[in-house]
Computed example of a mutant assay.
Amino acid sequence: MASKLAAFWNHPAGPKTIHFWAPTFKWGISIANVADFAKPPEKLSYPQQIAVTATGVVWSRYSTVITPKNWNLFSVNVAMAATGIYQLSRKIRQDYMSVPEAPLNKV
């Protein structure tokens, strides 16, 4: 167990480097997006969710080709892409696929 902890501690993308802390703090974006699952879809922003999704997709790919492999960066960006896609799907369903309610006729 101690050798695994030492390997993690001394890894080039370990907790002694910015390569660890930047993706760790980036989890806040994904957590905030998950918290917004309770928000009504009409309050979601297309530009924001497109940015979150695109960032997640682009950096997920990039994190697999850099050296050293940074699996923390990969996982946070997969989470960003997934939550962004989910939020975009909610917004698109609301804006383009829902049937508008008929107005009530009062007599």
Rank of each mutant, 00 (worst) to 15 (best):
G56H: 03
K39W: 05
D95W: 02
E42L: 03
A54E: 00
P40S: 14
Q87N: 12
I92L: 15
S75G: 14
K43H: 07
K91P: 05
A82E: 04
T55H: 10
V58R: 02
A81K: 00
T53H: 09
N77S: 04
Y86I: 09
T64H: 04
I50D: 07
V58I: 13
R61M: 14
P47I: 07
K39L: 13
S75F: 14
K43L: 14
D36K: 06
P47L: 06
V58F: 11
A79G: 05
A82H: 04
P68R: 04
K43C: 04
Q94C: 13
P47S: 03
D95Y: 06
F74K: 04
N72C: 07
W71Q: 01
V78Y: 10
S75E: 10
R93T: 07
T64Q: 12
R93N: 06
A82K: 02
K43I: 05
K69H: 05
T53V: 12
T67S: 13
K43Y: 04
K69R: 07
Y96R: 10
Y46D: 03
S63V: 00
V76Q: 00
T53I: 08
I92G: 01
L73S: 13
T64M: 15
G84T: 10
A54D: 04
S89M: 15
A54I: 05
N70G: 07
N72A: 13
S89E: 13
F74W: 13
S89Q: 13
V52K: 02
V58P: 01
G56T: 05
S45Q: 13
K39F: 10
A81S: 06
L73A: 15
L44E: 02
V76D: 05
Q87I: 04
V65H: 05
P41C: 00
A51G: 15
N72G: 14
V78G: 05
V78D: 08
F74P: 00
R61L: 12
P68A: 06
I92W: 11
M80C: 14
Q49Y: 14
A79Y: 01
A79L: 13
N77F: 02
K91T: 03
R61W: 12
K43Q: 08
